[in-house]
C-alpha cells in the first residue's frame, strides 16, 4: 500500500464514519492537535466529527536526513470525535481493516500513554496502539484544553503516517517508502528538505530574529484578542507562530533551562487566552468551569 493510498483510505473510512474532511492548516505546527479543528473544537458543547492530514514540524527531531526513523517534518492523520463514541475500539479497528490490517490476525495492544501538552495547557488519558510491537496510533481522551474542562470529552486519534507506512510496506528506512506506486519515494520528495531544514534549525536560523518574532507574535496575539470585534483566528495563528519560534530556538540550543520554561509558559498563556476567547464566542458558549 502506497503512502498516498494510506491517506486516501483513511480519509474514505473516516468520512464514512461521519467525519468532515478538512485540509491541512497552513501554518507550521508541532502536531495535528494544534489545528484549530482539534484544539479549539475540542472545547464547547457542540458535537463534531472531523479528520484531516496535518504536516508537523519538530525542529529538534531533525537528523540531517541521516537517521531512517527521525524527521523534523512529517505527516499525521488526525481524527477528532466529539463526544467520544461508546464503541471506540471497534470503530478504530475498522480503520485498520480499511488499511488491510486484520486485528484478529495481528497482535494489537493498548499501551497506557497519558498525554500532556504544556504549551497548549492540555491533557488527556489514552494509549499508544501497538501492532505487532510497532506503535502505529495514539488515542487520547481530551480532559482539558487551554486549562478548561472538555465537556463533552473528545477522542483524538492520531496516526503517524510514516510509521504506519513503514509497517505496511515493510521498509527499514522512511526514505525508501513508496509514495505513489509509480516509482516516487519519500526520499525523493523530502530528503533534501530534511537536510536543508536540519541545517537551518540547528545551525543557520537567525536567533535574534526568532526572538524578535516570538515577542511580536506574543504581542500581536494579545492585541487581536482585545480588539472589538475580536479577531480570534489571526490571534490563534500568532499563538502557533510563537510556538514554532520557540521550537526552532529550542532546536538551535540557545535557550537555558529557565528561559525554556518561561517560553513554554508564555505560549501557554496565549493558548489559554485564545481558548477563553473561543469559549466566550456566542455561537459556542457553554457553561465550562474555569480553572485557576
Amino acid at each position: 500500500m502506497t503512502f498516498q493510498d494510506i491517506i486516501l483510505r483513511l480519509q474514505h473510512y473516516w468520512v464514512e464514519q461521519g467525519c468532515l474532511l478538512l485540509q491541512p492548516y497552513d501554518a507550521p505546527m508541532g502536531a495535528g492537535t494544534f489545528h484549530y479543528a482539534t484544539s479549539l473544537w475540542a472545547l464547547g458543547a457542540q458535537a463534531r466529527r472531523v479528520c484531516y492530514v496535518q504536516p508537523c514540524r519538530r525542529p529538534a527531531d531533525g537528523r540531517y536526513g541521516d537517521n531512517p526513523h527521525r524527521l523534523q517534518h512529517y505527516y499525521q492523520f488526525q481524527v477528532l470525535l466529539k463526544p467520544s463514541p461508546s464503541c471506540v475500539l471497534p470503530c478504530y479497528e475498522g480503520s485498520l481493516r480499511a488499511l488491510g490490517l486484520d486485528p484478529d490476525v495481528h497482535d494489537l495492544r493498548l499501551i497506557e500513554d497519558d498525554w500532556e501538552s504544556p504549551t497548549l495547557n492540555a491533557w488527556g488519558l489514552g494509549w499508544e496502539v501497538w501492532c505487532d510491537g510497532m506503535e502505529i496510533t495514539q488515542l487520547t481522551y481530551f480532559q482539558q484544553v487551554g486549562g478548561f474542562d472538555c465537556a463533552p470529552v473528545s477522542l483524538e486519534i492520531t496516526y503517524g503516517l510514516e510509521r504506519l507506512a513503514l509497517y505496511l510496506q515493510k521498509k527499514e528506512s522512511v526514505y525508501d517508502l513508496d509514495w505513489d506506486g509509480r516509482g516516487t519515494t519519500y526520499g525523493q520528495l523530502f530528503h533534501a528538505h530534511e537536510r536543508d531544514y536540519s541545517f537551518y534549525n540547528f545551525n543557520y536560523a537567525d536567533v535574534a530574529a526568532l526572538r524578535r518574532e516570538f515577542k511580536e507574535a506574543e504581542a500581536s496575539c494579545g492585541r487581536l484578542l482585545a480588539c472589538q470585534p475580536r479577531a480570534l483566528y489571526p490571534a490563534w495563528d500568532d499563538c502557533l507562530r510563537a510556538s514554532h519560534c520557540f521550537n526552532v530556538l529550542d532546536a538551535r540550543g540557545v535557550l537555558g533551562v529557565h528561559e525554556r520554561q518561561a517560553h513554554i509558559a508564555r505560549v501557554r498563556d496565549l493558548a489559554r487566552a485564545c481558548a477563553q476567547a473561543w469559549l466566550d464566542h456566542k455561537d459556542d458558549s457553554t457553561k465550562e468551569k474555569k480553572h485557576g
Binding site: G124, L125, Y141, V153
Partner: peptide, 14 residues
C-alpha cells in the same frame, strides 16, 4: 481517572 463522551462518571479508562 477520566471522563469520556458526556459522562459525569470518572473511571481510569472508559
Amino acid at each position: 481517572s477520566m471522563r469520556w463522551g458526556w459522562s459525569a462518571f470518572t473511571w481510569v479508562r472508559p
